[in-house]
């Protein structure tokens, strides 16, 4: 073999080695993402074992939360998480759908992008900003306007009156739900808009050709066609609402009890962890908080997995 051939073989060997190393490095990083998720699950399970062993199934249904006697139950936090997210979706879903309707059907072309970006900026604002704004601006405003109004009107209606009873604290479940609804609105809007835009124009044109009004086209053609994607977007927003921490921590009031009134202070899983974790003394207290984190993670994981599955289905249909 000539000297030239030898160097050539060496260079090729080095390149081949480099290729193999790079390929394996990227594969390792991809596996690392999977490892990250399993790491989160394993560490949360590991951390919550002491609490779950002590309280057993009672942890999920007990209303007690008493750090002094080391007696912990997750029910008030789970209740608060579910209720605030429910209020948030109750507002964000119809409003988000209507904004998507406006952006895809009514808005003049040149305004679509700016308005779309402005709505998406709401998602970019950090949650701590919503928190400080909620505490100093929004809660006092609600305390003087919406809450007294609700107490004086709906509060006297038999049956649902107890849901609007009590003094107007300003902070509380309703306030948290309202702030959450503003935070998740952009998620509902942007995904709904995208699936609305993906509806084949032929379908809409055919409906217009039959003499449908704009609203009838959206209601009877666009919405049924985009249903799966819309539900996916809603689930994604729900996942966000369930796990949202700082905005809620500021305005929820951190009270470990279940009240019939939505105006009362309460707590959520994430707010409890944020408020109490650094001050938790004793292994059982810490472990109970980590067990709360585990519950939150499992709930959001299921919701987000459903969301992704639905969105994947519609992506396949469009793609």
């Amino acid at each position: 073999m000539s000297a030239e051939a030898v160097t050539r073989a060496k260079v090729l060997d080095r390149l081949r080695l480099g290729d193999a190393v790079f390929c394996h490095l990227t594969r390792a990083a991809a596996l690392g993402v999977l490892l990250l998720l399993s790491g989160v699950i394993i560490s949360l399970i590991d951390g919550s074992i002491p609490a779950l062993r002590t309280f057993g199934f009672g942890f999920f249904v007990s209303e007690r939360w008493n750090p002094v006697t080391d007696n912990f139950g997750a029910l008030p936090a789970i209740y608060g998480t579910v209720l605030t997210s429910f209020i948030a979706m109750l507002i964000a879903v119809p409003v988000g759908l209507m904004i998507a309707f406006f952006l895809t059907e009514l808005c003049p072309q040149w305004l679509r992008r700016p308005i779309g970006i402005a709505i998406e900026l709401l998602a970019g604002i950090p949650s701590i900003i919503y928190g400080i704004w909620g505490l100093f601006v929004f809660a006092p405003f609600l305390q003087e306007t919406l809450q007294p109004f609700l107490i004086n009107t709906l509060g006297n209606v038999p049956g649902i009156g107890s849901a609007f009873a009590g003094p107007p604290y300003g902070i509380g479940m309703l306030t948290s739900g309202l702030i959450l609804s503003i935070m998740v609105l952009p998620f509902v809007t942007s995904i709904t808009r995208d699936v609305f835009e993906a509806v084949p124009p032929v379908l809409k044109e055919a409906a217009y050709g039959l003499g449908c009004t704009t609203w009838e086209v959206v209601r009877n053609v666009v919405l049924p066609y985009a249903r799966v994607g819309v539900i996916g977007g809603i689930m994604l927003a729900l996942g966000r609402a369930l796990g949202e921490t700082m905005a809620v921590t500021f305005v929820i009031g951190n009270a470990h009890r279940i009240s019939a009134s939505v105006l009362a202070p309460g707590t959520t899983i994430s707010a409890t962890i944020a408020n109490e974790f650094t001050e938790a003394v004793g292994d059982l207290y810490t472990s109970a908080l980590i067990a709360l984190g585990l519950i939150l993670f499992v709930i959001t994981f299921i919701v987000l997995a459903i969301a992704r599955y639905l969105l994947l289905r519609i992506e396949r249909r469009i793609g």
Partner: peptide
């Protein structure tokens, strides 16, 4: 990985804090 990554993308950040604490 894409599925898991999309879930991590919107997972509650406070849980990440607990994970790193652990």
């Amino acid at each position: 990985v894409r599925f898991i990554n999309d879930i991590l993308l919107s997972a509650p950040s406070i849980v990440v804090g607990l994970f790193i604490y652990e």
